[in-house]
Design a binder for these strands. Structure first.
Lengths: 259, 259
DNA sequence: CTCAATTTGTTCGTATGTATG
DNA sequence: ACATACATACGAACAAATTGA
């Protein structure tokens, strides 16, 4: 079917891990339905063009992960309830963003060598005089799924240090009347976990991540809020209404709208 | 510095590949500046807690990728110009989407066993009577970066079969006056390459991908266009203006706006 | 010019992991 | 389960090129 052995040359990842990840995917996407009997070892051998033992190693991995159960003489079966992935919907508008952030469970992390300034890119305004640096980890059911690295303009921070220490910064900013936001945007790319990230998110080194950069710019074109957020890739999803600008002609009254 | 060997237990990917991907990241993010001398082998040994040979294997990989040059007696140096990644900006509005699609270089792929119907999810309207299935690969500089799997309602297709065969379907739809679009949305998640995908995109099996699902629904709540698009993860980027709905109060006059 | 220090490059031996048939 | 081949990883020793004192 597929020339897996050639793919192997390209990737250098052990074959049985590659096979396991393809099978894991089939379970998670329900190409192999929950509870269903998956193809026999012989069929899998043929499909992936690998030896019997290699398929077995792959099956072993997925058994340990609880995604497969095998039974001698009967066959191998997909798990009844595969984990729900992509539960976290990345916000695409200010209002939704603020709303979604309210329920955040986060834990502040101490940083020993905080960077003094963020490095701004094109279209991200100008640097403020000074920043505070905050790092936190976001949790769902005691499982970490995101790391926030935030540069917050110090004069904003000083207006409510306690609030900023206790609540998500965006919530605090959204509730204050004395912060003027002219631009707010978010950039998303796919990256991979470095050692520090893999440690905090408890994922493999090099595992895919979603890297979100959220920047708020005030009316003086100063970047007052620069957040680099790293999510584990299987936690998140992004939904875009392509015709949104035609629909929300009235638009929600937001503080961000004030000039 | 980092307990790489423990991370290794979790991931099972060969150590030298893990080391290589951490280093690759440092180059691409310019933590190691272009042209700069990177730490010596001895220092890297110490930082990653691995043997000399393992660091060398990692360096070899990056040398082959053109990201590092080493010179005996002098040191190892980061490449002058690391490749630009994330060049393809995923559209977040209809107008931008249509605009960006115009320059597409794509090649149709024959499909032997086309699925009769797409599987619709919640909020994706209802099935049309019948569909045609089209598959194509998108290229930049002769390098593939995206695969499109499209279900197009047959009655739409029949209105201009030649156009649909030769041009991107969205362009054709956007230019026709006789297609009413009520909803258009796009969902993005991070996935990983299965054998067929890794083959077409020439990436490793299991390498991260961006999976975009773009759905158009007409005024009868029928899903007339369902595209599953798979991009290689390092090609794409997503930029969201969180305050867009407040700005474009007037909005572009689009055909999609007609009712 | 020579010498020593630095740094990359190569090789050996050994142990374990991966993959086939 | 076995025999075989090759890949991965370690540690250590040595060779070769570069630099600067």
């Amino acid at each position: 079917m597929f020339e897996l052995s050639k793919v192997y040359d390209r990737s250098r990842v052990p074959l049985y891990i590659q096979v396991a990840s393809v099978m894991r995917r089939r379970i998670e996407t329900k190409q192999w339905h929950p509870g269903q009997k998956i193809p026999t070892l012989v069929e899998l051998e043929r499909e992936f063009q690998v030896a019997r033992v290699t398929v077995r190693q792959a099956v072993d991995i997925l058994r340990e992960e609880g995604l497969l159960r095998s039974q001698q003489g009967r066959g191998t079966f997909a798990a009844e309830k595969p984990v729900d992935r992509h539960w976290f919907k990345l916000a695409t508008t200010w209002d939704v963003l603020i709303e979604s952030i309210k329920n955040n469970v986060l834990k502040r992390i101490k940083v020993d060598n905080p960077p003094q300034f963020p490095t701004l890119r094109e279209g991200e305004g100008e640097l403020a005089d000074s920043y505070v640096f905050l790092r936190s980890v976001q949790y769902k059911d005691a499982e970490p799924y995101g790391i926030v690295n935030l540069h917050l303009a110090k004069d904003i921070y000083k207006r409510a240090p306690d609030a900023f220490r206790q609540h998500p910064a965006l919530t605090v900013i959204a509730e204050r009347k004395d912060v003027d936001i002219q631009h707010a945007h978010q950039t998303v790319v796919i990256g991979s976990a470095d050692p520090a990230t893999s440690d905090l998110l408890q994922i493999a080194l090099g595992a895919p991540t979603a890297e979100c950069r959220c920047v708020l710019i005030d009316r003086n074109n100063v970047a007052i809020y620069i957040a680099d957020i790293i999510y584990r890739s299987d936690a998140i999803q992004l939904h875009i209404d392509l015709l949104a600008h035609l629909r929300s002609s009235s638009g929600g009254r937001t503080k961000a709208a004030r000039r």
